[in-house]
């Protein structure tokens, strides 16, 4: 009796298992259904198309700078200049530059009171230059063990015109500069140059060396 009872129970259990198993099987979605469901789920991250025009390009650069210009015979004064550079390659850049300073009194004018070679207007010195630069020593500067900046020591040369003492003169400029690329879109500049041009204020034309040291900060665009 007992055996019959347990057999009956076993039959029921087996039947239930088979039935539920079948039910579970029938609930499994077909391949078509899977694809349908997946299509309903929208991807959370939109596919980003590649667009080259969205990459920032910084081959042009504007460099405002301030410093000191020593005008031979006419003391040293503040100079302000602005360069517009175009980087042709990683090594070479070309540019146009405008600058302005003011000459002081020459030793002769100081020694002999009342003797003025130049009017105030003539003491204003303005120049423009066409420059070419060569990044001679590119490198890296380690500010801390985690902060590293790219830098470059470059040679620069230029030709242009200087207006001083009422005349326009041909200027030839050579120098050396240091560029510290601190941010993606700006750099720090220190530059030392010699502007050479002829001056004939004293009646005799002579070649003058006019040293300039500037500190600049640039913006790429």
């Amino acid at each position: 009796m007992e055996i019959r009872y347990s057999r009956f129970l076993l039959k029921i259990t087996t039947l239930t298992l088979i039935l539920t198993g079948q039910a579970a099987w029938s609930e499994t979605p077909s391949l078509d259904q899977i694809q349908e469901v997946e299509a309903v789920i929208q991807p959370e991250v939109a596919r980003v198309e590649f667009d080259e025009s969205k990459i920032d390009v910084g081959d042009f650069e504007i460099v405002p700078a301030v410093g000191i210009l020593s005008i031979e015979d006419f003391s040293s004064n503040v100079v302000i200049n602005t360069k517009f550079n175009y980087h042709m390659s990683e090594d070479v850049f070309i540019g146009f530059e405008l600058g302005r300073s003011k000459g002081g009194k020459s030793t002769f004018e100081v020694m002999v009171p009342g003797s003025n070679f130049l009017s105030d207007e003539q003491r204003v010195l303005t120049y423009y230059l066409f420059n070419i630069g060569y990044n001679m020593l590119p490198g890296e500067a380690y500010l801390t063990d985690k902060v590293t900046y790219n830098n470059a020591l470059y040679l620069t040369g230029g030709m242009g015109s200087v207006e001083f003492a009422g005349d326009t003169r041909l200027a030839v400029t050579v120098g050396v500069g240091y560029r510290l690329m601190m941010f993606n879109l700006s750099s720090l500049y220190v530059e030392m140059r010699d502007h050479t041009f002829n001056l004939d204020v004293t009646g005799v034309s002579k070649l003058t060396n006019n040293f300039e040291m500037t500190l600049g900060y640039s913006f790429y665009f």
Binding site: I55, V57, G58, D59, H87, S89, N184
Partner: peptide, 9 residues
Amino acid sequence: IILRRTSWL
């Protein structure tokens, strides 16, 4: 790509 300078990215 952060930026481009001459022929370097």
